[in-house]
């Protein structure tokens, strides 16, 4: 595909629409799911099954006034929510949904997505710093320590997968897993590594995505019981809306990456009819798990969070990296 101006605009519009639609309806799914787990019906008044709730919420948010707290750093304050949304949308450009549906495939796709993902925590720092609010400040300090702690095991696990595939091209990584479910990186009995510890890597990666997207039980940045609403305490209107959309867009990206790296992307478990639908099915199962986890576990403490990363996830992922390297050498 040539990079003409029209193509770029179309790709960006589709990415924004996809991200916005996902954000809106994941909020709906989240609220319905939470309600079911707590044995209530959830939003069910506006439209069938409450399906009109997200657009109405959006209208409400847009109609509100955007206020800047006195003494806030205006430029950073406005830049932060944009920075929360922008990397997420950029990442969509390089994610392959099937072997044909991809805006721009790159041979360093993995790298690019992680580069953009690391910008996500910048937005939290900006928001917390510029708000001139002690709670926001504390939240951004937490967000940084959390991002540092969880990006390491995440990247180590990704390197493990990249080593098995021998490529940082997302297409290539999926193609290597395509023959059958036993070639998927979550359970690679027939792949070229035969590594039985990969399910563990999958768990590590999934936990890190949870932490990276600031989702419960790792939502210490938000921690409404102690920090009001954390970094977005001072945001109203679409400033808050963008943070919210950014969070859900990041969930989608995280699930996309998990699908691509571990669950064989768009390949079918039995080798039948590979296509975008398999990707969508896996993606939404993962997202449902995100929601399920959020409403199952209480928030951890900051110590628990850092201990989990430094004492368990990093050593285990490092061990698996070495183990995989050894296996690749042997086979």
């Amino acid at each position: 595909m040539n990079l003409t101006l029209l193509n770029v605009i179309v790709a960006v519009v589709i990415a924004i629409a996809f991200a916005a639609l996902n954000a809106a309806y994941l909020v709906w799914a989240e609220r319905r799911g939470a309600a079911r787990i707590q044995r209530r019906p959830g939003p069910n008044i506006n439209g069938p099954f409450g399906l009109l709730q997200p657009p109405l919420d959006g209208i409400k948010l847009m109609a509100k006034q955007l206020t800047t707290p006195g003494g806030a750093d205006k430029v950073l304050f406005i830049a932060a929510p944009v920075l929360a949304m922008f990397p997420a949308i950029m990442s969509f450009v390089t994610i392959p949904f099937s072997d044909t549906i991809v805006a721009k495939n790159m041979n360093v796709g993995v790298l690019m997505i992680f580069a953009f993902a690391s910008m996500g925590s910048m937005s939290l720092v900006f928001a917390g710093w510029s708000s001139r609010n002690k709670y926001s400040m504390m939240s951004s300090v937490r967000a940084v320590s959390q991002a540092v702690a969880y990006e390491i095991p995440m990247l180590i696990t990704t390197i493990t997968v990249v080593m098995i595939a021998g490529s940082t091209d997302l297409m290539e990584i999926v193609n290597q897993q395509s023959p059958s479910i036993l070639h998927w990186n979550i359970f690679p009995l027939l792949g070229n590594s035969h590594n039985l510890l990969m399910p563990l890597s999958f768990l590590i990666f999934f936990t890190c995505t949870l932490a990276e997207t600031n989702r419960a039980p790792f939502d210490l940045g938000e921690a409404e019981s102690e920090l009001v609403a954390g970094f977005h305490t001072e945001y109203g209107s679409m400033g808050f809306g963008l943070f919210f959309m950014g969070e859900y867009a990041n969930i989608v990206i995280g699930s996309c990456m998990t699908t691509i790296l571990f669950l064989g992307g768009w390949s079918c478990p039995f080798g039948l009819f590979p296509g975008v639908w398999w990707f969508i099915i896996k993606l939404y199962i993962l997202i449902a798990t995100f929601i399920w986890i959020r409403w199952t576990f209480p928030r951890t403490t900051i110590y628990g969070l850092l201990n989990l990363s430094w004492k368990i996830l990093i050593p285990l992922s490092l061990f698996n990296l070495l183990f995989t390297a050894g296996l690749i050498k042997v086979f």
Partner: peptide, 10 residues
Amino acid sequence: TFKEFIKPTV
């Protein structure tokens, strides 16, 4: 939580 999820609302 999964078990609660599939039970009817109260």
